[in-house]
């Protein structure tokens, strides 16, 4: 009996048809391909893309971002001392995004939250100078305004009475 069933299995190849059923299922499934220039990915919340700077928020004298940057690609020019008493905004602010690692250390260290990541990722240019942002050309959009990393927002667990929560709220 066993020999007969073995023989039947040998000549009817049931496993092969199982495999073909699997591929047939995939044939009718939704395709995962993203057609890049036409369809763009929706990037996750904490994407570390191109840096954006809110010049009006920067207090420029701290220059934390400049000091902490491992690539040395930020350069802040604070205003002269007399002026700085009233207006602390930088005279000039350079970020060379060509060399930027998107490590995020400048964002973490900034005392006012003036500098932050955006979700722009298309950094291919013809001339590298296009990636050098200064005070006028550094973009800033209000939509992707992360002052700090909001570490709790995406946590699936609900946190009640957390001291951190109050801290988050106060910001």
């Amino acid at each position: 009996m066993e020999a007969i069933s073995k023989f039947i299995r040998m000549i009817t190849f049931p496993e092969l048809f199982k495999g073909m059923a699997v591929t047939a299922k995939y044939f009718f499934q939704r395709k995962v391909t993203e057609q890049y220039p036409d369809q763009k990915t929706i990037l996750p919340y904490r994407t570390k893309g191109k840096l954006h700077v809110d010049i009006d928020k920067c207090i420029s004298l701290c220059r934390f971002c400049e000091k902490v940057c491992p690539e040395g690609c930020i350069k802040v020019f604070p205003p002269p001392k007399e002026l700085a008493k009233t207006d602390k905004r930088p005279v000039e602010f350079y970020i060379n995004q060509e060399h930027c690692l998107h490590c995020g250390m400048c964002v973490d260290s900034c005392s006012t939250g003036a500098i932050h990541h955006s979700d722009e990722y298309e950094l291919v240019v013809i001339d590298f100078k296009e990636l050098l942002g200064d005070k006028e050309t550094l973009p800033y959009d209000m939509i992707k305004k992360h002052y700090r990393w909001n570490y709790l927002e995406n946590v699936p667990v609900k946190i009640k009475d957390s001291p951190l929560k109050e801290e988050e709220k106060s910001q």
Binding site: T23, A24, Y26, F27, Q29, R30, K31, V32, T33, Q35
Partner: peptide, 11 residues
């Protein structure tokens, strides 16, 4: 491509 959940060459 379709069998592998891709689109294949369509550009």
């Amino acid at each position: 491509g379709f069998y592998q959940s891709r689109l294949g060459p369509n550009r």
